[in-house]
């Protein structure tokens, strides 16, 4: 027991190791070699969009962003309590000198979420409507969700290098499953008699999707979007390890310099952003009946 905890264990199987890791590495190497041009183009394009995003948000003074966000929070949730929470939380972030880091984190989260939703919802629709596709997609999602988050960071680096693009890539991969899963679930939950009514009046598949299935699964899909945002946020923080800046970067710095107070402050910033994003998306979700 003692030996095991010291890491001095060596229980090798007499059969040679199956080279799963090697195969994956060879595959990634092959991809990077042959698609270097493509990955570089994607990388530059993504980086410039995220930069533009950050620049725009940075262009406004904090108080304008705070007022606008508070108004949005109030307008969507119609709850004074949440507006109050938003304004106090953001003021605290500003006060703690975490504003720039927060804007970067927010930009990464929003950008990743948009990408995850744009890719995830159509895949979810496809999975909902096609039994065979669902049979393939769902196990992959299970796999993706049980794989530890930062494993995604490793293959991102050879493709996109250290930095914000790799972070986004890993974040999208990590955050996309609930968008797919809950879209599929929502569509499949629509009462069969409503689908039948839609068919009985001669709807095409597209009409049925747009006029019946999507509106009726709106709440469930939005629950998925909410989860995707939350996962993005947690991943963006982890992605600081590969050079994404923002609140995660602050936490990372605090760990390296062993400054628990600084780490706590940055962590508090993450919590505030998480709560605000959560409440706003919950509000969007329940706005429609």
């Amino acid at each position: 027991m003692q030996d095991l905890l010291k890491g001095e264990w060596n229980n090798k199987m007499p059969i040679p190791k199956i080279p799963i890791g090697n195969i994956i590495e060879a595959g990634i190497e092959w991809l990077t070699k042959n698609f270097a041009g493509l990955t570089r183009a994607i990388s530059q394009f993504t980086a410039s969009i995220i930069d533009a995003f950050i620049d725009i948000l940075m262009f406004f003074p904090p108080w304008i962003i705070i007022i606008v966000t508070t108004f949005i929070a109030w307008y969507i949730t119609k709850k004074i309590k949440i507006a109050f929470l938003t304004i106090l939380g953001l003021l605290l972030i500003w006060n703690l000198d975490l504003w720039d880091a927060t804007i970067i984190t927010l930009s990464l989260v929003l950008f990743s979420t948009v990408i995850a939703v744009i890719i995830g919802i159509p895949i979810g629709i496809f999975a909902a409507l096609n039994n065979r596709a669902r049979g393939i997609i769902m196990p992959i999602l299970d796999f993706m969700q049980t794989m530890p988050a930062f494993v995604y960071l490793i293959p991102a680096i050879p493709f996109f290098g250290l930095g914000v693009v790799s972070a986004t890539f890993a974040t999208v991969i990590f955050a996309i499953p609930p968008a797919i899963r809950l879209t599929a679930l929502g569509i499949r939950q629509v009462a069969p008699e409503l689908i039948e009514a839609s068919d009985a009046f001669g709807s095409t598949r597209m009409q049925k999707l747009i006029k019946v299935q999507l509106p009726l699964s709106y709440q469930t899909i939005m629950a998925g979007v909410n989860q995707t945002i939350m996962l993005s946020l947690s991943m963006v923080v982890i992605a600081a390890m590969i050079g994404a800046k923002g609140l995660g970067g602050e936490v990372w710095k605090a760990i390296q310099r062993f400054r628990p107070g600084m780490g706590f402050e940055a962590g508090l910033g993450v919590v505030i952003i998480a709560i605000i994003l959560d409440r706003i998306t919950q509000g969007v979700r329940s706005r429609r009946t």
């Binding site: 009462a191 008699e193 409503l194 039948e196 009514a197 068919d199 009985a200 009046f201 001669g202 019946v212 509106p215 009726l216 709106y218 429609r288 009946t289």
Partner: peptide
Amino acid sequence: RRKKFGMVFQKFAIFPH
């Protein structure tokens, strides 16, 4: 279906949205 058949269902099947 669009032109010739109108259908009415036991569980009404009215669209709630």
